[in-house]
Simulated assay, not measured.
Amino acid sequence: MKKHRIYTMSFGAVYPHYVTKAEKKGRTKEDVDRIIEWLTGYDTAALERVLDDGTDFETFFAEAPKMNPARDQIKGVICGVRVEEIEEPLMREVRYLDKLVDELARGKALEKVIRYT
């Protein structure tokens, strides 16, 4: 199986784009970090280490402290694809994060974005 390019890309290279997308809509870096913590279990210190050490997406998700078991309830379209229909597990994890950041940037309250509990 050919690896998707995003898997080998540094999470730290993409993270600023998540933050910029949120900030353009009046949200904060802390809001993005809360979403990441909810989804993956990375606290602030662990996230900073990941951002500093060049961890790729594949490793970021594989070594996540505690993937949220409710993440499979995330539904909707991101990049023209329904997240719940993505068969490849790692791509589905990436798109879950994309979807949550997108909802935040669209103005949803943080509590509603991480409503899947």
Rank of each mutant, 00 (worst) to 15 (best):
R5L: 12
R5C: 09
R5E: 15
R5Q: 15
I6R: 08
I6T: 13
Y7Q: 10
T8W: 03
T8S: 14
M9E: 11
M9I: 10
S10E: 13
S10D: 14
F11A: 10
G12K: 03
G12N: 08
A13G: 12
A13L: 11
V14N: 01
V14K: 03
Y15A: 05
Y15N: 02
P16R: 02
H17P: 05
H17C: 07
Y18I: 03
Y18K: 05
V19F: 12
V19C: 14
K21D: 01
K21Y: 07
K21H: 04
A22W: 00
A22N: 02
A22P: 00
K24E: 09
K25S: 14
K25N: 12
G26A: 11
G26F: 00
G26E: 00
T28S: 14
K29Y: 10
E30N: 14
V32R: 00
V32K: 01
V32I: 05
D33Q: 08
I35M: 03
I35S: 00
I36W: 04
E37T: 10
E37Y: 07
W38A: 10
W38D: 06
L39D: 09
L39I: 03
L39W: 07
L39Y: 14
T40N: 14
T40Q: 15
G41T: 13
G41R: 06
Y42V: 10
Y42W: 11
Y42P: 00
Y42K: 05
D43S: 04
A45H: 01
A45T: 06
A45F: 04
A46V: 06
A46H: 03
A46E: 14
E48R: 12
R49C: 11
R49L: 15
V50H: 00
V50I: 15
V50W: 01
L51Y: 01
D52T: 08
D52R: 13
D52M: 04
D53V: 10
D56I: 08
D56K: 06
E58C: 09
E58K: 07
E58V: 06
T59S: 13
F60T: 01
F60G: 01
F61H: 07
F61Q: 02
A62K: 15
E63R: 09
E63I: 02
A64E: 09
P65Q: 13
P65E: 11
P65R: 13
K66H: 13
K66P: 02
K66Y: 04
M67G: 00
N68R: 09
R71A: 05
R71K: 05
D72I: 04
D72Y: 15
I74R: 00
K75D: 05
K75E: 13
K75Y: 08
G76V: 11
G76R: 11
G76P: 05
C79F: 05
C79G: 13
C79M: 15
G80S: 09
V81I: 12
R82M: 08
R82V: 05
E84S: 09
E85L: 11
